[in-house]
Amino acid sequence: MSTMAAPAGNNAASSPLRAATTVGGIAMFARREFRDAIASRWFLLYTLAFTVLAVGVSFLSLSGVGSSGFAGFGRTAAGLLNLIMLIVPLMALTAGAGSIAGERERGTLLYLLAQPVSRTQVLLGKYAGLALALVCSLCIGFGVSAGLLAWRAGGVGVGAYILLIGFTAMLALGMLSVGFVISVVSRRTSVSTGVALFVWLALVFVSDLGLMASSIIFKLRVQEIFGVAILNPLQSFKMGVIVNMNASLDVLGPVGDYASHTFGAVLPWLLASTMVAWIVIPLAAAMVLFVRRQSV
């Protein structure tokens, strides 16, 4: 990818392969975005925070047990879940929210769009670069805590751990997509970051608390609670991780039992596909909004 990006970017019009040009253009922006991201202080801070907290949670949940083999991954995962659900959406939403709006505010978006590339390429390139950077930063956090688990717990539940990483990556990409939607429609980074924080608060706290309250007030039935809950990517993420870990959602009480009984083996795929929908639909929306915009 890197070898063909350079000529494609330098002289895009003369390239014989249009497909290669499109991909090359995206790759070019992706590299630029990735480089900018890992150089930015915010990103380093998030990575550091995520790593330190992930290691801390892993360590705490394994310490104090003489016979550590039992601890396995389950307990650590429960601790990690909360942490991931707080930090990863925040990280991805703010990164996405800053992307286009930041360029627009600094005036560099004009410069980018003056290049012989389409708006779609710019957007997808920026998305790919940031996505790569996010995954990279998650890999560092998960990698260090995997090392700790291997040392202290003897690596129980490797498969579940890999699936946890996969689901977390999907969560990050989904939230990044939402961040892009916010970014495309915002003029200033302060506004887009504010909106991103609001969305974060809504997804992490308000929707769950609201659903709790409505299930008490309206006496919602289990299927209604489940149906509404999986719309929230964070709940889908949580259920996905738990169902992969325990092969059932019994941990989540009657609603979980209902889901396991009704959907059985399809359940992990159902949850994964809602998460994929959260990646694809907002990204497509961001693309449409960005392409349709006449001005910068």
């Binding site: 429960a78 879940l81 909360n82 659900m85 707080l86 992490v204 706290f205 769950d208 608390l209 659903l211 709790m212 299930s215 008490i216 919602l220 289990v222 609670i225 489940f226 809950a229 964070l234 709940q235 949580k238 738990i242 941990v251 989540l252 009480g253 009657p254 609603v255 979980g256």
Partner: peptide
């Protein structure tokens, strides 16, 4: 009991 769905969450 239905609220057990929300364990392990920031809420």
């Amino acid at each position: 009991p239905n609220l057990r769905l929300f364990v392990h969450s920031p809420a």
